[in-house]
């Protein structure tokens, strides 16, 4: 379902682009304002409210014990899940996860997993292993949820505190949380949209509606590319992809400043 207003606004975006301009006179490869609020929840072992422009994503992490996977008996388990909450956008509705929601969670997960952000090896407690359950909730959708969610999740993981394990009770003592979990690598993503053949970084929802597809490039510390997802019906030339990679690698330096380890 597309509302008539979406189509009118999309036309406006395209008209501006014909003059080589973008809403708010923003450059084609510049981000909107980024803001990060860490540890805003008490019960979650890690939390962050991240926003890019008007998009808001709340990430929370719960730590639990779980059965190890049979092929990885000594390894902790990281799971990333997303919720597109009905309050975040008019076309979101309650119910089982949509393909969009699954894709969003998997793209955010992909970079973090590939870059080994958390060392999961050897996180064994008794006969169980550590489960790190990351859930992020979209509170307001104004485009570029992938980059916003990656920032939220990276911040929540960077400030994760592990509860003390009581071997006698074979359980965590949730009140005692002293141990920080070390983040081994920092990951950011840069998402570009293609609108009438032009490629724009960090699109808001009106620009996304005007576009025909997007390209997300995940970058990890040390100049490595750690994830990619081309989405939507748009096609990209190899040159366009490599140009996006170059911009994403530069933007990584800018975005990692928003991944903060609180004192």
């Amino acid at each position: 379902m597309k509302m008539i207003m979406d189509e009118i606004r999309a036309e406006y975006v395209k008209e501006l682009l014909k003059e080589g301009k973008r809403k708010g006179d923003r450059g084609f490869d510049s981000y909107r304002e980024v803001s990060i609020k860490n540890n805003i929840l008490k019960n979650a072992e890690g939390s962050c409210l991240a926003s890019i422009g008007k998009s808001k994503v709340l990430a929370g992490v719960k730590i639990d014990l779980m059965e190890p996977f049979s092929d990885r008996p000594e390894e902790g388990v990281l799971m990333v899940n997303s919720e597109l909450m009905p309050l975040a956008y008019y076309s979101y509705s309650a119910g089982p996860p949509t393909p969009e929601s699954i894709e969003l969670a998997r793209v955010v997960d992909r970079g973090i997993r590939a870059a080994n952000v958390l060392e999961m090896q050897g996180l064994k407690f008794g006969d169980k292993v550590l489960g790190v359950f990351v859930d992020f909730y979209v509170l307001d959708n104004d485009g570029n949820l992938t980059d916003t969610a990656t920032l939220a999740v990276m911040n929540a993981l960077s400030n994760l505190s592990i509860p003390e394990f009581n071997a006698e009770l074979n359980a965590f003592e949730r009140e005692k949380r002293n141990r920080k979990m070390e983040v081994k690598n920092r990951v950011t993503t840069s998402t570009f949209c293609k609108i009438n053949g032009k490629i724009l970084l960090d699109c808001d929802v009106e620009e996304e509606n005007a576009g025909s597809g997007s390209l997300t490039i995940g970058v990890a510390d040390g100049g490595f590319i750690c994830s990619t997802q081309k989405s939507g019906s748009a096609s990209f030339s190899k040159k366009e992809v490599m140009d996006c990679v170059d911009i994403a690698m530069k933007k990584h330096e800018e975005l990692v400043r928003h991944i903060k380890i609180e004192g």
Binding site: A114, A115, L215, F224, I225, C226, T228, K230
Partner: peptide
């Protein structure tokens, strides 16, 4: 020769 599908995971240099 336009790219229709592009996904990636792992750690690669440019």
């Amino acid at each position: 020769s336009e790219i229709l599908l592009l996904q990636m995971d792992g750690l690669l240099t440019r």
